[in-house]
């Protein structure tokens, strides 16, 4: 399978999607809606970041399974 078929959608999804995600994360921190001096907000900030890596990892694993199995 060629590079564009496998990796172009992945790079677009986490490139453009990542811009939305990290842009909105920066916006809620800058506005004070996510106040990182509060324990609960700090914890949810970590959950958001880990969640992004989790979903990106699932898609990465899917691509690798399709390529090598």
């Amino acid at each position: 399978m060629d590079f564009n078929r496998v990796w172009l959608p992945y790079l677009y999804l986490y490139g453009v999607g990542g811009l939305f995600f990290f842009g909105s994360l920066a916006l809620v921190v800058r506005s004070g809606a996510c106040d990182r001096t509060r324990f609960a907000d700090r914890r949810w900030f970590r959950v958001l970041f880990t969640g992004f890596l989790w979903i990106a990892g699932l898609h990465l694993a899917g691509n690798l399974l399709a390529l090598f199995l």
Partner: peptide, 14 residues
């Protein structure tokens, strides 16, 4: 089903 996380910061904190 796997692309709903991008706007979660705006949902959770906004």
């Amino acid at each position: 089903y796997m692309n709903d996380w991008f706007f979660m910061p705006l949902f959770m904190f906004g």
